[in-house]
């Protein structure tokens, strides 16, 4: 069961809440009737804050992240984004315009350059931008990457650089919310700190809601709130 540490769970949507999970449960299609990946989860996420979701392996962290990012729909309960039920929203549009997703393994396309990965996301969002390459370079610079890296294949970048590209990609369509799955899991301490600074800036200066699924104590130290997930028994 989920445990909220810093704040009691609230089901009523406050003005500042961008995402509200209400009694959400998820069962895999091949699961038995009483087998849940997550069960009766209720969390609220506000704009301008960083959240951490913690839990042991098998506690349903990735499943929860998938529900939040619209990769799956919850089998029971409701998830409201900006007051709208995700069940009523086209999840492809939701993913390419409202929410940015960052993964531990970066999930960049290896045969593309850094800028092409970002432009791909810009294209998917349907934004009309005259110079997409310039926009991609600006995004890269905003996460601390030199413009020289724009034309490099992502496989020629370090882990930290790839993660910055992934973050830049997630920011390309200026989403209201960033969801990150173990974003610093493959990075050294120094780089981890730099990446977390980016997230803090996005939340506290740009007013985005950042949700980080993590094991890392370093991450938990910088977040505003932590949700602990426990394995469903």
């Amino acid at each position: 069961m989920a445990k909220k540490i810093k704040e009691n769970k609230k089901i009523d949507i406050k003005d500042n809440v961008i995402l509200s999970i209400q009694n959400a449960s998820y069962q895999y299609s091949d699961a038995t009737s009483d087998e849940y990946a997550i069960k009766n989860i209720s969390y609220d996420f506000e704009k301008g804050k960083i959240y951490a979701i913690r839990g042991r392996s098998g506690s349903g962290k990735t499943t929860l992240l998938s529900l939040i990012s619209g990769l799956e729909r919850c089998t029971e309960g409701t998830i409201l984004f900006d007051g709208k039920d995700l069940k009523d929203i086209n999840l492809d549009t939701y993913r390419n315009s409202q929410i940015g997703i960052v993964f531990q393994s970066y999930n960049l396309l290896p045969y593309m350059t850094a800028s092409e990965n970002i432009i791909l996301s810009l294209d998917a969002s349907g934004q009309k931008i005259d110079n997409k390459k310039q926009k991609a370079i600006e995004l890269m610079e905003s996460v601390g990457l030199k413009s020289d890296y724009a034309d490099r294949r992502v496989l020629r970048l370090s882990g930290g650089e790839q993660q910055r590209v992934a973050i830049a990609r997630s920011l390309s369509y200026n989403p209201k919310m960033i969801v990150a799955d173990e974003p610093t899991g493959n990075l050294d301490k120094q780089t981890e700190s730099e990446i977390l600074d980016i997230f803090k800036k996005l939340a506290h200066e740009e007013g985005k809601c950042v949700i980080i699924v993590t094991h890392s104590p370093n991450v938990c130290e910088i977040v505003d709130e932590i949700y602990d997930l426990k394995k469903v028994k």
Partner: peptide, 13 residues
């Protein structure tokens, strides 16, 4: 498959 996963994740239908 991985490529498909990435494309789907960034919202390509």
């Amino acid at each position: 498959k991985y490529e498909i996963g990435v494309f789907r994740t960034i919202g390509i239908s």
